[in-house]
Amino acid sequence: MKLSREARDVLETSMLQNRVGAKDRDEIETLVAILPDDRVLLYKNVVSNPLGDLYRYSIHIRIQHMLTFVTFLMLAFTGLPIHFFESFWAEPFNQVLGGVSVTRIIHRTIAVIMIVSMIYHVLTITLGSWWRMRAGTFDIRRTIIPLWKDVRDFREDLQYFAGKRKTRPEMDKFNYKQKIHYFAAAFGNTVMVVSGSSFLFPELWAMILPTSVASHWQELMRLSHPHEALLALLVIAFWHWYNVHLAPGRFPMQWTFLTGKITREHQIEEHFLEYLRNLVEQPAERKALQDMLESRELLAETGRKGGKS
């Protein structure tokens, strides 16, 4: 496979950052050369363990996901009957928890845990990036920071879904969907914390803000809290679930949030650039891939283009 300029750049950067020796470099280049030109054939034919083959998330990220996940569900579950307190259905919910006054206390308590998880997360990514910068292994393309490439990826992906393009774009460790989702969640959490705090400490916010906006602020926060909550609830219920559970290829469940690993076929399909880095960083993966390609006679060198040849 002849790598695109982008993929080549990622590969070179990765080999440089990992201080890859001549022997390994040779091995990587040879492997890349014999990859089938059509990436679709590659991800359709590699063998994957559904629990994941390739390292993706550290234990910290997984704990943060768990914390956010549990607190979010519980916050939504307690928040809805608080907001819609008068509705007939809210009463049994509140009764189960011990009455609305108890629901409110549970809601705030869990909110504190969610904030802790947010702080934990910010610390993790800041310190992690700092560590990488010091070690000289930081690559902005490998982070969640949105880049212009993501806009292009989005356009190309839509073209692929519409049948106007042969392959999905070569996306990085975090693709456009994940970046949208991540920043929506980060923004949403911030909105929830800020608006929630302005219910708890209205005097404090009035003191901080200028007179002309103090009232508007409180009103905006009272709107934002339930709106953002319902939006998040629906995004989780209909989009996040789709992406990690229901989408074909991920069904019935993507195990990454538990194992921290992603499957090989998923990595090649949606995160090809990260897969190239995997090839650099994990010699065992090179071997496994080569064996798979040989057993299925998919090597580009053999002259066969594979598939329906």
Partner: peptide, 11 residues
């Protein structure tokens, strides 16, 4: 949870 989401829409 998806049922809960549908419920939220209804609400």
């Amino acid at each position: 949870w998806t049922l809960w989401g549908l419920f939220a829409i209804w609400v």
